[in-house]
């Protein structure tokens, strides 16, 4: 079995099973804990819980004015990173084909050269994020192994993907195999570290939205 066959075959399969298993496990394990919602009488004219949940998710997309100055880098870099990843992951033709093979769903792709450019920007944003983390005393204090590992495991697929696209460093199928393996490690780690925020942030925001919405308070 070649490395590529291993990557595309058993490695990917095991990684995806761990990803799905771990993510649903963590998801249900957290959200099936007791729901203790305060049954207080909502403020008159308060948003309905659903509207408040939705508002919570939306409002948190941009910082309130007083936090903009200090948080601008975090927010802007965060957006660059997340949009970059989204574009690279979901709008690159080979990736769409992979998703189509898995789910049957398909959508138009962006030109590869554009995706490569976005990939480079995404990498730069990741590096900038790490530098920021290492330079800030607050971030150094609150960062844990998870933060650095998640960073690395996010960086690797982007890096190996770019190398594969550029045919740099090794033969293409080796690069492709390494790229797929790096995605495997990403998927395997995903449910266990902070990458899980990709699913949980919606609930976290929505719940605060509901709590504050009921009170007629801001989010």
């Amino acid at each position: 079995m070649t490395l590529l066959e291993f990557a595309r075959g058993p490695a990917l399969q095991v990684a995806m099973i761990i990803f799905v298993l771990g993510a649903t496990w963590r998801f249900f394990g957290a959200l099936l804990l007791p729901w203790r919602l305060a049954p207080a009488e909502p403020r008159k004219g308060a948003l309905s819980p659903i509207a408040a949940a939705f508002k919570g998710v939306v409002v948190k997309m941009w910082p309130h004015k007083p936090f903009q100055k200090a948080g601008m880098f975090t927010f802007v870099n965060g957006y660059i990173l997340h949009f970059g990843l989204a574009i690279v992951v979901f709008l690159f033709a080979p990736h769409i084909l992979f998703i189509k093979g898995l789910t049957g769903l398909s959508w138009p792709a962006l030109p590869n050269n554009l995706v490569y450019t976005v990939g480079v920007v995404t990498m730069a944003s990741l590096v900038a994020g790490l530098v920021h983390r290492l330079r800030s005393p607050v971030l150094r204090l609150i960062s844990r192994f998870d933060d650095y590992l998640s960073w690395l495991l996010t960086l690797l697929p982007v890096l190996t993907g770019l190398l594969a696209a550029a045919h740099l460093g090794a033969r293409y199928e080796t690069l492709l195999a390494v790229h797929i393996l790096s995605i495997c490690t990403f998927l395997i780690w995903f449910p266990f570290g902070k990458l899980m925020h990709a699913f949980m942030f919606v609930f976290s925001r929505a719940m605060t939205g509901v709590r504050m919405g009921q009170r007629g308070a801001e989010l």
Partner: peptide, 17 residues
Amino acid sequence: FGAVAAAHLEACVRCGM
């Protein structure tokens, strides 16, 4: 540790904001 606390604790990305 109810579902709400859990959802909050599971969502932190250590951004320091």
